[in-house]
Amino acid sequence: MERKIRVLVAKPGLDGHDRGAKVIARALRDAGMEVIYTGLRQTPEQIVNAAIQEDVDVVALSILSGAHNHLFPRVVELLKERGADDVLVFGGGVIPEEDIPFLKSKGIAEIFGPGTPTSKTIEFIRANVKRPLC
């Protein structure tokens, strides 16, 4: 039986704009994935612990406050520390293009800016999940 792709959708930082996170959560569900939604104001520690307990394949982070350079790398770092570097981490939100190389160098696999179709995100996940699905 094919294993379901499990995705943690989390909003690190303090901003409350969860329209994007919720739309993505629904779109991933409608694409047959299991989405664990942890809601607003999550610290990197909370996100990583949830990711490990839920044994997810993917962590999807959404942030609009501008704190991405601080919070995204921290999530990847903590996952590594816990030996969970087989988790695919990507982000979305209001993130200036010029920050993307820095974030990628810190292990964020991709950044999806405003206007990215959900279908693109779904394809990206399917193509890049690190753990085998069978």
Partner: peptide
């Protein structure tokens, strides 16, 4: 979801306050 086979698991949201407690393990 009976349509896609996917799911949104939101119960954990309520319990995320315990996410950093090593004495608690939550699984959806």
């Amino acid at each position: 979801s009976p349509f896609s086979g996917g799911a949104i698991l939101g119960d954990r949201l309520r319990m995320q306050g315990h996410a950093t407690d090593p004495g608690v393990f939550i699984r959806s």
